[in-house]
Write a protein that binds this DNA or RNA. Sequence first.
DNA 1: ACGCATTTGTTCGTATGTATT
DNA 2: TAATACATACGAACAAATGCG
Lengths: 259, 259
Amino acid sequence: MAIPPSASSAAGSAAAPAPGAGATFSPLYQQIKRLLTRSLQEGEWKPGELIPSEIELAARYKVSQGTVRKAIDALAAENLLVRRQGRGTFVATHHEARAQFRFLRLVSENGAPVHPESRFLDCKRVRAPSDIARQLELKAGDAVVVVRRLLLIEERPTILDEIWLHGALFKGLTAERLAEYKGPMYGLFESEFGVRMIQATEKLRAVAADADTAHLLAVAPGAPLLSVERVSLTYGDRPVEVRRGLYVTFRHYYENELG
Amino acid sequence: MAIPPSASSAAGSAAAPAPGAGATFSPLYQQIKRLLTRSLQEGEWKPGELIPSEIELAARYKVSQGTVRKAIDALAAENLLVRRQGRGTFVATHHEARAQFRFLRLVSENGAPVHPESRFLDCKRVRAPSDIARQLELKAGDAVVVVRRLLLIEERPTILDEIWLHGALFKGLTAERLAEYKGPMYGLFESEFGVRMIQATEKLRAVAADADTAHLLAVAPGAPLLSVERVSLTYGDRPVEVRRGLYVTFRHYYENELG
DNA sequence: ACGCATTTGTTCGTATGTATT
DNA sequence: TAATACATACGAACAAATGCG
């Protein structure tokens, strides 16, 4: 149910602002949105699954269909839900072509999306260095999993990734499981570890390749590389992954829409 | 008025799909959205101005307030309009802090937005090279204006821009007008030339500084620079600017949100 | 192949709340 | 305080897409 145990018909009077308190008010549809988000987070509806219809949800929360609709609209705009007319509303998942390209912005010279092949170099549990710990909101020395991998596009090494994962959440992750898994890495995280990436921030820089990197990426030492440092967040804006990538941008570029 | 001269109450029957034709149907609110966009494009309401209230627009187009609201919501989501509760709905403008940061993604090490100072190096009318012509959808040899400028952040040269503008639209643009103008460049374009940038696509790469660039940006020749090639669009997705920037990313980075 | 039930999408109308002038 | 404008909420009806019998 929504907020007031009393009136459910009186629209605006639903959540009266507490006279003394500051900013405790929130519109009904945002309260519903929060309830839906919690259900998603707790796994009541899993990625790819159908959630109850608007009418059912309206009955469950004792609000109008329109209010549920607005809450769902907001979640769909954040890519947490996907609406399909005539079929229902589904929990978004990384197991679809759509979701991939939201998190991989490198495209071919002609603008075509790329389909990289993964080669895992390394996967270890270690104690978090202080900078990683800070970004993952852990204490320095807490456990993290670090994965190194090379992405090849059309047989050519193009991206060198170093991926740091929240240790407690990714217990049991090994190089074998990564190598065996068919499909996107975030799909594995979602299905096998119940951790869904829903948002990320990237910091981009141009850097010069050091000797080791140059060797792995088959470029000259000192060659310019695009450095992409990503922090990925799950529900509740909790950071769960830090990813440092070095991209060869001779035959590809990073595409970004400003709008 | 919307589409059907006949019924205005019968909701869904508004635009019946022509049986033989393909995809001529569009919901009412999208038709209204298109009409609003046309009024924006034609300058009926200028950047920064207040547009008529939802109720007035509903009367004008003979639709319900809710339908107007949905059209405005869509335009606000595309940053063409800005809603302000209690005041009205305004045409978006580049003369506000908000709009700046949508088109300048470089931020300080600590994430703070930067306030660069412009130094104009050059401004000429020339015939478009073929690659620029193609990107601006002109014929090779058509007139374009090319501007070169240096952006300094905290006294240090940080961005070298080469800006190619649609010649016919920017007739009369000179280095003096650029230098005199107080405020953002896109603000000048909007106020003085009636050209509003509403969207852009950027292609990012890492490149090595050549000798001239290195000198202007005060870095070593061969230093890694972030290359940002932007194509900016105005109403109707018409390209009107190609901008090639080289960014020094030692003390700053390009920030991007994925989500 | 057809029709029916279900579900989201669109549209209208109305009332009330909140913010601004 | 009053008027105006956007924001929220409810209810009702029909359209369009889908899936099933």
